[in-house]
Amino acid sequence: MLRRVILPLIFGIGGFAVLMGLGLWQLQRLAWKEGVLAEIDARIGSAPVALPAAPDAAADRYLPVVVRGVFDGTELRVLASSRDTGAAYRMIAAFDTDDGRRVLIDRGLLPVETPPVPIAGQAATVVGNLHWPDEIDSYTPPPDLSANLWFARDVPAMAEALGTEPVLVIARTIDGPDLAAQPLPVDTRDIPNNHLGYAVQWFGMALVWAGMTVFLLWRIRRRTN
């Protein structure tokens, strides 16, 4: 009987060990990801600084900044939605800073049924975070330029369309006139963190594997007897 069970037993123990190891690895990844998210949250909420001379998409992602200047009135609409507003547009506006630069400001969400407020010549102080959203994939439609409607935030393309630097400040607060749109500050809620779910799946598979191994050994023993 020992010869008949030794191979299934080795196979069962080995498979169980591998699946448990994958589950533990996902728990380690979970701890790492939570640390990364905590660092990003801390950076997002830190004191704003002046806009860097040459912002870098990697080094300056989520950097809190403050810019002062004037909206020139040109802006883009990016189709979006939220739990509070439903269907809405993200309003991406060109902003001429007091120190002679021209950048993009994500002013926030404007419900589709709400008419936009004229913003040309409106002076404002914007506190927000630099961001280069990764929203483009093979399924993203190209922008409908005739309707001024975009389907994702593509910083280089939007900057080219509005004649600005490829720099996007997602507004946290806008100190100035009421511009209708509701700021939607950057946060970590949209950064995926599925490692706990993966760990549960691997541990569940390990238990199933162990159960199947026990059942197989029982069947072998029964046939032998």
Rank of each mutant, 00 (worst) to 15 (best):
Arg77Phe: 10
Leu79Arg: 00
Ala80Cys: 00
Ser81Phe: 06
Ser82Cys: 05
Arg83Glu: 12
Asp84His: 15
Asp84Tyr: 12
Thr85Gly: 04
Thr85Pro: 00
Thr85Asn: 11
Gly86Arg: 01
Ala88Trp: 01
Ala88Asn: 07
Tyr89Ala: 04
Arg90Cys: 04
Arg90Asn: 09
Ile92Met: 11
Ala94Phe: 05
Phe95Asp: 04
Phe95Ile: 03
Phe95Ala: 13
Asp96Cys: 03
Asp96Leu: 13
Asp96Ile: 03
Thr97Asp: 05
Asp98Arg: 07
Asp98Tyr: 01
Asp99Ala: 11
Arg101Glu: 03
Arg102Val: 01
Arg102Tyr: 04
Arg102Asn: 07
Val103Cys: 03
Leu104His: 05
Ile105Arg: 06
Ile105Met: 07
Asp106Glu: 08
Asp106Ala: 09
Arg107Gln: 15
Arg107Trp: 12
Arg107Lys: 14
Arg107Asp: 05
Leu109Ala: 14
Leu110Cys: 12
Val112Phe: 00
Val112Leu: 13
Val112His: 01
Val112Met: 14
Glu113Ser: 03
Glu113Tyr: 08
Pro115Ile: 06
Pro115Phe: 07
Pro116Leu: 12
Pro116Asp: 10
Pro118Ala: 13
Pro118Lys: 14
Ile119Gln: 15
Ile119Tyr: 01
Ile119Gly: 11
Ala120His: 10
Ala120Ile: 06
Gly121Trp: 12
Gln122Ser: 14
Gln122Met: 13
Gln122Ile: 07
Ala123Thr: 14
Ala123Lys: 15
Ala123Asn: 04
Ala123Pro: 02
Thr125Trp: 06
Val126Leu: 10
Val127Tyr: 05
Val127His: 13
Asn129Tyr: 03
His131Phe: 03
Trp132Asn: 06
Trp132Asp: 00
Pro133Leu: 08
Asp134Ser: 12
Ile136Pro: 04
Ser138Met: 08
Tyr139Val: 01
Tyr139Ile: 09
Tyr139Glu: 11
Thr140Leu: 00
Pro141Arg: 04
Pro141Tyr: 02
Pro142Asp: 07
Pro142Cys: 00
Ser146Trp: 05
Ala147His: 13
Ala147Asp: 15
Asn148Thr: 11
Asn148Tyr: 03
Ala152Phe: 02
Arg153Ser: 03
Arg153Gly: 00
Asp154Ala: 02
Asp154Val: 01
Val155Met: 00
Pro156Asn: 01
Met158Gln: 12
Met158Phe: 00
Glu160His: 03
Ala161Lys: 13
Ala161Asp: 07
Ala161Cys: 04
Leu162Gly: 06
Gly163Leu: 11
Gly163Ile: 10
Thr164Leu: 04
Glu165Asp: 15
Pro166Arg: 05
Pro166Trp: 08
Pro166Cys: 10
Leu168Cys: 11
Val169Ala: 08
Ile170Tyr: 01
Ile170Asn: 08
Ile170Ser: 06
Ala171Cys: 13
Arg172Gln: 15
Arg172Thr: 15
Thr173Tyr: 14
Thr173Trp: 12
Ile174Pro: 09
Ile174Gly: 12
Gly176Ile: 09
Gly176Thr: 05
Gly176Asp: 04
Pro177Leu: 06
Asp178Glu: 12
Asp178Gln: 13
Leu179Lys: 15
Ala180Met: 14
Ala180Asn: 13
Ala181Asn: 09
Gln182Phe: 13
Leu184Val: 08
Leu184Lys: 08
Pro185Ala: 05
Val186Asn: 03
Val186Ala: 14
Asp187Gln: 06
Asp187Cys: 07
Arg189Val: 09
Arg189His: 12
Ile191Tyr: 14
Ile191Gln: 02
Pro192Trp: 11
